[in-house]
Design a binder for these strands. Structure first.
Length: 809
DNA sequence: GACCTGGGAATTTTT
DNA sequence: TTCCCAGGTC
């Protein structure tokens, strides 16, 4: 391999040439040839195609270290972008570890959004903003849109503001300013979409605010319209690295292209097979087009997998093969064969949950012929969050500790947002959205009418809502209890603002001083520091009556909310002042609650991306649920392919044991629905799959599960033999082959079946899969009321009942 | 302002 | 079916 010689030359050069000699480079020795190539090919465009578990982060961080060690760039000349804060943090830590010192001054390693905030603060005036603009969260955004929608006299029922918010986000993802919205989209949101989008942008400007989408959109606009600014950054960023390139949207893509046009040293890392965010604006096309976009690009494939067993990899690659237009990768590993991917069908969702629970307990105890597995090492990955419930219910009853990943985030909780609104208002008294949020929280007797009065006063005087409120109070426009409370609030805010110490933002930003090791757009101007910002935060929450509000609340959530508020104040510790904290938090929505104790993880497939577990359960592999019917209906083949990538992501999360399951029947919105096993199951390569026999009365894989009315003899055989060779399996295959790509929902859904009811008479002895034998005591709609011998009286859908005489065993 | 009731929706989610 | 929100009532 010639790159070895090159590398040696490099090493030699750097050793003799610089003080680098003191710095050994073990980071290169531990790389495999492909990783090494990806690290050492420093110049020109590079696409690092990194399959799941192939050491992508390692290569990426090694590349940064290599750039530094070879003296190609100073830390602040490297632009390294990620999508999540977690990824950014990890990269920072790992670069630090590799360098054997803390990385000071990698100011441009961060998320797209964090980096854009930094840039936009410097050039805000170019898009008619002030550099201290606020960043709205989705809550604020929606509130604003609702106001605009209401002003337009639109029926909020038929055209929810949420929908508009989605449309606008979509435009922003595509880097479309209001003027650029294409004619094809003119009809959006009852033909008012484009107009409202423009109104929304105008309102944001008035408020000196931006939303998340704007951060990128504004920067792209600035780069496109101010060549001098762009050029400056093009020159500065000698090397650009991008993580998860397959997830970039149009705006991010344009942003990168513009910046990379200078030195052309852009290295994008990604995996087209793991692109699962198309619905959020991500364009797989970006990564597929890379070589066209960046002529002369060098493509490196990382294909050696360090995570999973060969069986798991084979199963994953069998599935992903069904996708067209892939860049193509074949993962391989040196690992031992291990266990095949396990496949099991169940009668219904409850049984599936029960089985998974038992299986987890067995693995934990080590009674599956293996070493005991920690609960932390196991995960259940579902397609949609509502699937989690069956597992949670089950695990609660059997006392199996679990954690749900990706619930409501800490900073999205109501109490946190309220508290933050207070802080925001103390820091920037003209933050009208924050004012609106807390003016009557806690209740101050300021209803709609009082708030309207404030609005009018503010508008008439051309001041902020807070000042408007002061005027309204002074003029006696708001009387009584409300007026007094409002006065108190206004006085409180003034008092707290007075206690604020820390930076006052410089007005005016000079573009020449732009790039420095540490970004000092914010200058510190410490006033007399009587109290810490943590104390101030507590004072604000106490004196405003906010803490008391929750203390007096007797709902079961109240203690938790108070706990969260304490947590919030604690989180302030890491910051110099309130301002710094607010800036940080507007971009970081981390789920900070790390709870202790061994627990099974339950999460969506999306949330699982980037994670790995020794044992993974993939339940709910039924057509319509996974792949999701909606996805296929809305996006056709494209949607199906994204679902398939999701399946690929799911399987490749598993290190040693991967268990896929499906249920023949599931309760969906209160209705029983039966469905066929997922078409992805048909795509699993037979040789790498072991079909398990579910426990229970029926005892037979597919017959019982997939084919509904299959005969009992078949199940008996299936219990012993490999189901792949059984007629049931063959029949399933045949059926799958006939199945059109997209089927109308009805054909897969068994609707209530009244005929089934009429087959039974009161007093008849019947059998039910789950409850056993019983007697019919009543008939109601499509349900039978049955007195079961073991389970007591229950109402059951007739379809799941058979006459006792027909029971085959 | 607290409470109740009816309608409508019920993939995936980071910043 | 269940949950959430909006709107109405007291």
């Amino acid at each position: 391999m010639s790159s070895f010689d090159e590398m040696d030359a490099f090493e030699g050069a750097s050793l003799s040439a610089r003080a680098m000699a003191a710095r050994p480079s073990p980071y290169l020795d531990s790389l495999n040839p492909a990783q090494r190539e990806a690290v050492e090919r420093l110049d020109g465009p590079v696409l690092m195609l990194a399959g799941a578990g192939t050491g992508k982060t390692k290569a990426l961080t090694a590349r940064i270290v290599h750039l530094l060690n070879t003296g190609r760039a100073r830390p602040n000349e490297i632009l390294a972008v990620t999508f999540t804060n977690k990824a950014a943090r990890e990269m920072k830590t790992r670069v630090g570890q590799m360098l054997g010192e803390t990385v000071e001054g990698m100011p441009w390693l961060g998320t797209f959004h964090a980096i854009c905030v930094k840039l936009l603060r410097r050039h805000a005036e170019l898009v008619e903003l002030k550099s201290n603009f606020t960043i709205l969260d989705t809550d604020d955004q929606l509130r604003l849109l609702k106001q605009l929608v209401a002003a337009e006299g639109i029926d909020d029922k038929r055209w929810p503001a949420r929908m508009l918010s989605g449309i606008i986000d979509d435009w922003k993802n595509r880097a479309l300013t209001p003027e650029k919205v294409p004619a094809a989209d003119a009809g959006a949101y009852n033909h008012k979409g484009p107009k409202l989008y423009a109104a929304y942008q105008a309102r944001l400007r008035e408020l000196n605010a931006v939303d998340f989408g704007d951060l990128l959109l504004h920067m792209v606009t600035i780069f496109q319209t101010h060549g001098d600014v762009l050029e400056q950054y093009q020159r500065w960023f000698r090397y650009i690295l991008v993580d998860e390139y397959q997830d970039t949207n149009v705006a991010q893509y344009l942003w990168l292209r513009l910046l990379a046009a200078g030195h052309r040293n852009i290295c994008c890392v990604g995996d087209d097979d793991q692109s699962i965010y198309g619905w959020r604006g991500a364009e797989v096309g970006n990564i597929l087009r890379f070589e066209k976009d960046f002529p002369g690009a060098h493509v490196v494939r990382l294909e050696q997998n360090y995570r999973s067993t060969p069986h798991i990899l084979a199963a994953a690659s069998g599935v992903i093969k069904g996708n067209q237009g892939r860049l193509g990768k074949e993962l391989w590993t040196e690992a031992e064969d291990g266990q095949k991917v396990r496949l099991i069908g169940h009668w219904d969702g409850d049984e599936e949950a029960r089985w998974v629970g038992e299986e987890i307990e067995a693995l934990q105890r080590g009674t599956r012929g293996q070493d005991p597995v920690s609960l932390d090492a196991m995960a259940i990955l579902v397609r949609a969050s509502h699937q989690m419930r069956a597992f949670e219910d089950r695990f609660l009853t059997i006392g199996l500790p679990y954690r749900v990943i990706g619930g409501p985030r800490f900073y999205e909780r109501m109490e946190i947002r309220d508290a933050m609104a207070y802080f925001r208002l103390v820091v920037s008294p003209d933050d009208d959205l924050a004012f609106e949020r807390i003016v009557n929280t806690p209740k101050r007797g300021l209803g709609d009418k009082a708030q309207q009065t404030i609005q009018v006063a503010a508008r008439a005087n051309g001041v902020s809502l807070l000042d408007g409120a002061r005027i309204a109070v002074d003029k006696g426009l708001i009387k009584g209890k409300g007026g007094a409370a409002l006065r108190e609030l206004a006085e409180g805010l003034a008092r707290w603002s007075g206690k604020l110490r820390g930076p006052l933002r410089e007005s005016g930003v000079d573009a020449d001083r732009v790039i420095d090791d540490e970004d000092r757009a914010v200058r510190m101007e410490h006033g007399p520091a009587e109290i810490t910002h943590m104390e101030l935060a507590e004072i604000i929450l106490d004196e405003s009556g906010y803490t008391a509000m929750w203390q007096n609340d007797k709902t079961p959530e109240a203690p938790g909310r108070l706990e969260n508020l304490k947590e919030l104040v604690k989180a302030l510790e890491g910051f110099e002042n309130l301002q710094g904290f607010l800036e940080h938090v507007s971009l970081i929505m981390d789920n900070s609650t790390e709870d202790a104790g061994e627990k099974v993880s339950i999460m969506t497939l999306h949330a699982a991306k980037g994670l790995e577990f020794p044992a993974v359960f993939l339940p709910g592999w039924e057509d319509g649920l996974f792949p999701s019917q909606r996805s296929m209906d809305e996006s056709g083949v494209k949607g199906l392919e994204e679902e398939r990538r999701l399946a690929y992501v799911g399987i490749t999360r598993a290190e040693e044991l991967c268990t896929i399951s499906f249920a023949a029947n599931r309760r969906v919105f209160g209705q029983w629905q039966s469905s066929l096993p997922s078409r992805f199951i048909d795509e699993l390569p037979e040789d790498h799959v072991e079909v398990l026999t579910p426990p229970g009365l029926y005892g037979g894989g597919y017959g019982a599960a997939g084919l509904g009315g299959a005969s009992s003899g078949l199940e008996a055989r299936a219990a012993e033999a490999n189901v792949y060779n059984s007629p049931g399996w063959r029949r399933l295959q045949a059926r799958a082959a006939e199945r059109p790509v997209s089927q109308p929902k009805e054909s897969r859904t068994t609707v209530i079946d009244l005929e089934a009811v009429s087959a039974y008479t009161v007093g008849e002895r019947v059998f039910h899969q789950k409850f056993g034998y019983g007697a019919v005591v009543g008939i109601e709609g499509d349900k039978l009321e049955i007195d079961f011998e073991k389970a007591g009286v229950k109402k059951v859908v007739a379809r799941f009942i058979m006459a006792a005489d027909d029971v085959p065993f």
